[in-house]
């Protein structure tokens, strides 16, 4: 949920940007991370752990812990808490470890 009024801070949001998450279209703002845009839309589950298939979300939000890995524009294991949102990004929840090398590449 986005904060509209705050006693100390003023949030200057950038231009609106469209992106998709698991095939559905969403809107975020320029300058924010993918994690911020997903949280604003109420999405907190980012991936499924490789072995026990547990849901995973954000933990540190500064790129330290790798809890938030997702597939972005086809590239797996992107730390979306530090990756900025860009127009037209295709964001997908990641299952397992992600395939970096596909046969034929």
């Amino acid at each position: 949920m986005r904060i509209e009024q705050h006693p100390v801070l003023e949030f200057r949001r950038g231009k609106k940007i469209k992106f998709t998450f698991d095939g559905k279209e969403y809107v975020g703002y320029e300058g924010e991370t993918i994690a911020a845009a997903l949280h604003a839309a109420g999405i907190r589950v980012m991936r499924e752990s490789p072995v026990l298939h547990r849901p995973r979300g954000l933990f540190c939000a500064i790129g330290n812990c790798s809890s938030c890995l997702m597939t972005v524009n086809g590239e797996p294991n992107v730390r979306i808490c530090v990756e900025k949102l860009r127009p037209g990004m295709v964001v997908e929840s990641q299952k397992g470890k992600g395939v970096v090398y596909a046969a034929g590449n």
Partner: peptide, 23 residues
Amino acid sequence: DLPGIYGAGAVQTLVNVYGILPG
């Protein structure tokens, strides 16, 4: 490990830098 459990600093980043409430 459930989504919705964060470091306090992580929530501070979401709230104070991006203006977004985690819950």
